[in-house]
Write a protein that binds this DNA or RNA. Structure first.
Length: 632
RNA sequence: CGGGGUGUAGCGCAGCUUGGUAGCGCGUCUCGUUCGGGACGAGAAGGUCGGAGGUUCGAAUCCUCUCACCCCGACCA
């Protein structure tokens, strides 16, 4: 058998592209299924991949990919390759082990911080295991791309990557070692056929093709560019309830974005104007010791979170030495949102038009901000301080109840909060007037994360809907961030030296494997989409030592293999119950069961994984066709 | 990095309070009976009780230190 196959493969032409399916016997490979999952495995994908013998944990966030798991990864990779190649990409392979020197030019060793898997080798060289390859490929391209005539160019690799996660978890969904496809494109312009925008759109289409072909239910959403930097960005999310990320979608226009990025549509301004409304009572100071979070404070004060004003203090960070010189001293941005909302740092930053960081509590205290107990009053009268208030917080009149709006907030004093905060009274001036007049330190602007039910920023402003998902792909327009930092510029056709414009495009290959299981399983096990299944057809031989059953199994396997179908033959001498349980667990799309009763009628039992009942009898000579029709 | 928890056979766990020959279920191996949804009987193999130090005649058990892992939070592809 083994000999026959090796002879055949020697006869094959090196350029033949007629793919024969693989035939594997369970007894000759390693599929260590288990009745129980490790106790720390909580998510279905983690439990089922371990129980089904796809993966095995080696240490926190690091896994063996056993034969079945590796086959699925290869199927994903192959789809990725085909679509990347079709979109004009060229595959290469860069090192995982890199000198930290490379990151000096962009400063990302610091930006990544502890997330970087970093060490010193025996010679004292500072090295890292790459979490991503912008610097490596930019360095390579800088030395290899010398003319505009070589552009545009799209290079990609499928590689093991590393992140020293604080807390690896959820099996393959968040590991310290994971497999990624990362692609980088190089351009000299934004527009035109050779421009970044066209390259980005091509990748967007390729990603849509890839995840469609994988059989995944996914959404493409607008996203923040994150630490990689750049101007535009989309995430590709597999839709499933157990996903870690929340996305918001507009049911009317299809607009979708993640929580960080999602804009909020026009909110109806209060009829009487912002801040207008009489005090609801005298300021009432309450002792709230040991209450770090808004939840505890609310409980202690018997106030709802939506009736609190949450005040977050940011410190302005100078992005250049010139800027630091031009604006000496500490500058602050104080952001106020309703207690049940979250401040969105990106939106505050965009509004303030400067780089921000969360204020250090000690430093803020010296400036008069008692972190944890700050109220909007703290910003009043302070020089170099901008107070920006979210529209939902800048309200003085409760229109629902038709009476003044009750607010509770911090007392600007350790371990104390106040009830009956009133905007006009407690700020000592009318904020609405102050905004427009000489006092420019007040502003009302949308600075919070969007939540379900907010008006959509597109169309007629239908309420946004929240969905959960797992991020499997992310594409960015980087612009010239890396090429500027690393001095990667070439001559254009006008003999002008120009920074190269880049895009970068990632797919979490091993995460896609887990996301697929998360999306598609039942109580008995995994249900693979045909495109990713480790084998397309499982032939379950009821009696391993029965000559007729073995012969028919081989005959069917050969027939299927000729047509490109991957076949796994369960030839173990196990009891039927064990084989059926294992079959459901590993989730091969089609099961052909060979037993005496069916064979006496020249038939086999045909069952689609996930379907109800025992399956149907199909004539042996029609079984292969039945499989092909079902898989098509 | 804060809070909580767990380390005993490949997997799941008991034993620890009150120190005295290391156990159970699943899995594995052998033999027999079975054979369409995780069979039954008989027998067998398998453990530096995470590691180091200490207390003690004697430590899985008590004490100290350490390492690893997990969960929640913060952070994040």
């Amino acid at each position: 058998m083994t000999q026959q196959r090796s002879q055949r493969s020697h006869q094959q032409s090196p350029i033949s592209n007629v793919r024969r399916g693989d035939i594997q016997r369970w007894s000759q490979t390693l599929i260590p299924t288990a009745r129980e999952a490790p106790s720390d495995a909580e998510l279905p994908s983690h439990r089922l991949l371990v129980r089904g013998g796809f993966i095995r944990r080696v240490t926190a966030g690091v896994y063996d990919y056993l034969p079945l798991g590796w086959r699925v990864l290869r199927k994903i990779s192959q789809i990725v390759r085909e679509e990347m190649n079709a979109a004009g990409g060229s595959e290469l392979l860069l090192p995982a082990l890199c000198p930290t020197e490379l990151l000096k030019e962009t400063g990302r060793a610091e930006d990544y911080g502890d997330l970087l898997m970093r060490f010193e080798d025996r010679h004292g060289r500072d090295s890292y295991l790459a979490p991503t390859h912008e610097e490596v490929i930019t360095e390579m391209a800088r030395g290899s791309i010398t003319s505009y005539k070589q552009l545009p160019l799209n290079l990609y690799q499928i590689q093991t990557k590393y992140r020293d996660e604080f807390r690896p978890r959820a099996g393959l969904l968040r590991g310290r070692e994971f497999i990624m496809k990362d692609a980088y494109s190089f351009h000299l312009s934004l527009d035109g056929e050779a421009g970044l925008n066209a390259g980005y759109d091509a990748m967007y289409r390729a990603y849509t093709n890839i995840f469609s072909r994988c059989g995944l239910d996914f959404s493409a959403v607008e996203a923040e560019a994150g630490p990689i930097g750049g101007s535009a960005s989309h995430e590709f999310m597999v839709n499933c309830e157990s996903g870690e990320d929340t996305i918001l979608v507009c049911p009317e226009t299809g607009y979708a974005a993640n929580v960080e990025k999602c804009e909020i549509g026009e909110r109806t301004a209060p009829a009487r104007g912002f801040f207008a409304g009489e005090p609801t009572g005298e300021l009432d100071k309450i002792h709230t010791p040991g209450c770090p979070g808004i939840v505890e404070v609310c409980k202690l004060m018997k106030v709802k979170a939506r009736d609190m004003l949450k005040t977050v203090v940011f410190k302005v960070v100078a992005s250049t030495p010139e800027e630091a010189e031009g604006y000496p001293g500490d500058w602050w941005v104080v952001a106020v949102v309703r207690g049940d909302h979250d401040v969105n740092e990106g939106k505050v930053r965009d509004f303030a038009e400067c780089k921000l960081e969360l204020a250090d509590p000690e430093q803020a205290k010296r400036a008069g901000f008692e972190i944890g107990f700050v109220s909007p009053r703290a910003a009043v009268g302070k020089p170099q301080t901008l107070l920006v208030i979210d529209p939902d917080a800048a309200v003085g009149w409760d229109e629902g109840k038709d009476k003044p709006r009750f607010w509770a907030t911090g007392a600007d004093e350790k371990d104390h909060h106040v009830k009956h905060f009133n905007w006009a009274r407690d700020l000592g001036k009318d904020p609405a007037l102050a905004m427009g007049a000489d006092d420019c330190f007040f502003a009302v602007h949308s600075i919070r994360n969007a939540i379900e039910g907010d008006p959509s920023p597109r169309g007629k402003g239908e309420p946004l809907q929240a969905k959960r998902g797992i991020e499997v792909g992310h594409i960015f327009k980087l612009g010239s961030k890396y090429s500027d930092a690393m001095g990667f510029a070439i001559m254009d056709e006008n003999q002008q030296r120009q920074s190269v414009i880049m895009g970068c495009y990632g797919i979490g290959v091993s995460r896609t494997l887990a996301a697929c299981v998360e999306m598609s399983h039942d109580d008995d096990g995994i249900i693979w989409p045909a495109a990713l299944a480790p084998y397309h057809v499982l032939i379950t031989v009821m009696k391993a030592d029965d000559e007729r059953q073995a012969r028919v199994a081989q005959q069917l396997a050969d027939e299927l293999s000729e047509r490109g179908v991957d076949v796994l033959i369960d030839d173990r001498s196990e009891r039927p119950g064990v084989k059926f349980k294992d079959a459901d667990l590993i989730g091969i799309p089609i099961r052909l069961t060979l037993g005496d009763k069916a064979l006496d009628q020249d038939s086999v039992e045909f069952k689609v994984r996930g379907s109800e009942g025992k399956g149907e009898l199909v004539a042996v000579r029609e079984a292969a066709m039945a499989c092909l029709e079902n898989l098509a």
